[in-house]
Simulated assay, not measured.
Amino acid sequence: MSQYRFKQSFSGDSSLSNKLFDLLEVTFPGLSSLAECARKIGASWETASTPFIRFHDDIAITHVGVLEIPMQIMGQRLTVGGIHAVATRLEFRRRGYYREVMEEVLEYCDCFYETLVLTTSQPEFYLPFGFRVVKEHIFKVKCGFRGSTDSFRRLDFTDTRDCTLLHRLLETRAPVSNIVGVVKEKPLFCVNEASRPLYYAEDLDLIACMETENTRLHLFDLVTTQICPLKNILARMPQLIEEVVIYFSPELLSVKDVQTFAHAFDETVLMVRGKFTAEGEKFMLPRSARC
Results as ranks from 00 to 15, higher is better:
residue 3 Q to M: 15
residue 4 Y to Q: 02
residue 4 Y to V: 03
residue 6 F to W: 07
residue 8 Q to V: 10
residue 8 Q to F: 00
residue 15 S to Q: 13
residue 16 L to Y: 06
residue 18 N to M: 14
residue 21 F to Q: 04
residue 26 V to G: 13
residue 29 P to A: 13
residue 30 G to K: 08
residue 32 S to A: 15
residue 33 S to P: 11
residue 34 L to P: 01
residue 36 E to K: 14
residue 38 A to N: 08
residue 39 R to K: 15
residue 39 R to N: 13
residue 44 S to K: 07
residue 51 P to T: 11
residue 52 F to P: 08
residue 53 I to A: 02
residue 57 D to R: 12
residue 62 T to Q: 09
residue 63 H to W: 11
residue 64 V to E: 00
residue 64 V to K: 06
residue 65 G to S: 07
residue 68 E to N: 11
residue 68 E to R: 09
residue 69 I to N: 09
residue 73 I to P: 02
residue 73 I to E: 03
residue 78 L to W: 08
residue 79 T to V: 09
residue 85 A to E: 05
residue 85 A to F: 02
residue 94 R to Y: 15
residue 96 G to E: 01
residue 97 Y to G: 04
residue 98 Y to K: 03
residue 99 R to K: 13
residue 99 R to N: 10
residue 105 V to K: 02
residue 108 Y to G: 05
residue 108 Y to I: 07
residue 109 C to Q: 00
residue 115 T to A: 06
residue 118 L to V: 04
residue 118 L to M: 07
residue 119 T to L: 03
residue 120 T to R: 04
residue 121 S to Q: 13
residue 122 Q to Y: 14
residue 122 Q to N: 13
residue 126 Y to V: 01
residue 127 L to D: 03
residue 131 F to E: 02
residue 132 R to F: 01
residue 133 V to F: 09
residue 135 K to Y: 07
residue 135 K to G: 07
residue 139 F to P: 08
residue 140 K to Q: 15
residue 145 F to S: 02
residue 149 T to M: 10
residue 152 F to T: 03
residue 156 D to K: 14
residue 156 D to T: 15
residue 156 D to W: 12
residue 156 D to L: 14
residue 159 D to S: 13
residue 161 R to D: 03
residue 162 D to G: 09
residue 167 H to W: 00
residue 167 H to V: 04
residue 167 H to L: 06
residue 169 L to H: 07
residue 169 L to Q: 02
residue 173 R to L: 02
residue 175 P to D: 11
residue 180 V to R: 03
residue 181 G to N: 01
residue 182 V to T: 08
residue 184 K to I: 06
residue 185 E to I: 01
residue 185 E to R: 05
residue 187 P to N: 10
residue 190 C to V: 10
residue 194 A to S: 12
residue 196 R to K: 15
residue 200 Y to N: 02
residue 201 A to R: 01
residue 204 L to C: 07
residue 206 L to Q: 06
residue 207 I to V: 14
residue 212 T to L: 11
residue 213 E to S: 14
residue 214 N to V: 15
residue 214 N to R: 15
residue 214 N to I: 15
residue 214 N to Q: 13
residue 216 R to L: 10
residue 217 L to M: 14
residue 217 L to C: 06
residue 219 L to G: 01
residue 220 F to H: 14
residue 222 L to F: 03
residue 226 Q to R: 15
residue 227 I to M: 06
residue 227 I to W: 01
residue 227 I to K: 11
residue 232 N to C: 15
residue 233 I to M: 06
residue 233 I to P: 06
residue 233 I to R: 00
residue 237 M to K: 12
residue 237 M to W: 00
residue 238 P to K: 08
residue 245 V to H: 12
residue 246 I to N: 10
residue 247 Y to S: 01
residue 248 F to Q: 00
residue 248 F to T: 04
residue 250 P to M: 08
residue 252 L to N: 03
residue 253 L to K: 05
residue 254 S to I: 13
residue 254 S to M: 09
residue 256 K to A: 12
residue 257 D to P: 00
residue 259 Q to Y: 05
residue 263 H to E: 05
residue 267 E to W: 13
residue 271 M to E: 00
residue 275 K to F: 02
residue 275 K to D: 09
residue 280 G to D: 00
residue 280 G to N: 05
residue 281 E to N: 12
residue 282 K to H: 09
residue 284 M to A: 02
residue 286 P to T: 02
residue 288 S to H: 12
residue 288 S to C: 12
residue 288 S to R: 13
residue 289 A to H: 07
residue 291 C to H: 12
residue 291 C to K: 07
